[in-house]
């Protein structure tokens, strides 16, 4: 595995991989969403308490998982930048940030749309909701940092340090429902003693989570391709400017 990662250190080889893998990932994502949405909207029964509004769960929960998974992916990339100095590490982190921000936004908005009919409020400064809002603000801060600092090398180091400092928020989000008395319900799937959700709802949820993950993987690879091209253009521009100057 490590040799494969270092083999991909060559951007040209990575671009070739994206060209080959991309179409298959798009097909897989579409298939997973088709099955997941059919299971979520047609096959899954209404909840005995929440009724049909439980169907919001099938997009809220995967979005929340992806919000955290994307940040964890950026944390690994940050280690790649600072420790292994992998040339594509910063490309990966920078390409992932907008995707993570989008999924975090979806988790907040669908959670609010689910909370209003069920809790009677759009928002509450609950430990889970607040820590996810902090995650969203951190994504925006990282995106701003990359856009502000011109030199990619310096931006990469600062972003990597900020990402790693921010990873403390992930366990806070995960365990907020256990550490504090929250309105948000405790975990129903990721539990040591197994899920508490009925299988008729659990399998569509897991398929939707796979679909979102496949979507993230596809978009992340294509966004990395764009970032590699952007950096090539920048170095070509600098070379051309240096050429005309000399």
């Amino acid at each position: 595995m490590f040799q494969r990662l270092t083999a991909l250190a060559n951007p040209t080889r990575f671009l070739g991989l994206v060209e080959r893998l991309g179409p298959w990932l798009v097909g897989l994502t579409l298939a997973l969403f088709a099955v997941g949405l059919y299971g979520s909207l047609v096959l899954a029964p209404p909840d005995y308490q929440q009724g049909e509004t439980v169907r919001i769960m099938f997009i809220h929960v995967p979005a929340a998982w992806l919000a955290m998974f994307t940040y964890a992916l950026m944390a690994v990339s940050a280690l790649g930048t600072l420790v292994w100095r992998h040339p594509l590490a910063d490309v990966s982190a920078k390409a992932a940030a907008p995707l993570g921000a989008a999924f975090t936004f979806l988790a907040l908005v669908t959670g609010s749309l689910w909370g209003k009919p069920m809790w009677g409020t759009w928002w509450i400064w609950d430990a889970r909701l607040t820590s996810v809002l902090v995650l969203f603000i951190m994504y925006l801060g990282l995106i701003a940092l990359w856009r502000t600092i011109e030199d990619p090398t310096r931006a990469a180091r600062l972003a990597a340090i900020l990402i790693l400092v921010g990873t403390v928020n992930l366990p806070i989000i995960k365990f907020s429902v256990d550490w504090w008395n929250t309105l948000h319900q405790p975990a129903s799937v990721m539990r040591l003693d197994g899920p508490t959700i009925d299988p008729s709802m659990l399998w569509p949820l897991l398929v939707m989570a796979l679909a979102f993950t496949s979507l993230l993987t596809t978009l992340h690879l294509y966004a990395m391709r764009n970032e590699i091209l952007r950096r090539r253009i920048r170095s070509l521009g600098l070379a051309a400017a240096a050429g005309t100057a000399s």
């Binding site: 009724g51 049909e52 669908t110 009919p117």
Partner: peptide, 20 residues
């Protein structure tokens, strides 16, 4: 079909589709 809170459900799926 989606019950008394259909608007919230449809809005959630519509916003998700728009963001994706």
């Amino acid at each position: 079909l989606l019950g008394p809170h259909a608007g919230f459900i449809l809005a959630s799926y519509a916003i998700t589709l728009a963001v994706i």
